[in-house]
């Protein structure tokens, strides 16, 4: 039970990570790929957050009942701030991805990988 309690968060994170990867590499629809990307990034954020979380620790906001010197009483805030940045990066990535998606749609009128490959083959035949 101890073992489970200590590690189940990591196990789930890994599972979600794999789901995300699966979405990115095995889904044939480009939008699905972006959804996979989103899940993948969320999983990484989850990983960092669970790294920082501590049994018995509290939110890293200064609280008068626990003096700052009692470091064990607080969680490590550094991963949190890092993850804010990571979220920003994720959103930016998705923004670019959407831009590309719309562009691809405008040029090929499809977002399915198979159809795209066929279109490319036709292009190269000319």
């Amino acid at each position: 039970m101890e073992m489970f309690l200590a590690n189940y968060a990591y196990a789930f994170t890994l599972l979600i990570l794999c789901i995300g990867l699966y979405g990115m590499f095995f889904k044939r629809n480009l939008v699905k790929k972006v959804i996979g990307l989103s899940i993948f990034q969320a999983a990484v954020i989850m990983f960092f957050v669970s790294l920082a979380s501590k049994m018995g620790g509290t939110v890293p906001v200064k609280w008068d009942e626990i003096p700052v010197e009692m470091i064990d009483g607080y969680m490590n805030p550094l991963p949190h701030t890092l993850m804010l940045t990571a979220i920003v990066v994720g959103v930016a990535t998705q923004g670019v991805a959407f831009g590309l998606l719309v562009n691809i749609w405008n040029r090929f009128k499809t977002l399915e990988e198979d159809a795209l490959n066929e279109a490319i083959l036709e292009d190269s035949r000319d």
């Binding site: 920003v88 959103v91 923004g95 959407f98 831009g99 590309l100 719309v102 562009n103 405008n106």
Partner: peptide
């Protein structure tokens, strides 16, 4: 900056002007 950027992304996409 963040607000402007997010709204900008939306506007560009909605206008179909994503030509990067």
């Amino acid at each position: 900056a963040v607000m402007a950027a997010l709204v900008l992304i939306y506007d560009k996409m909605a206008d179909g002007e994503v030509s990067q």
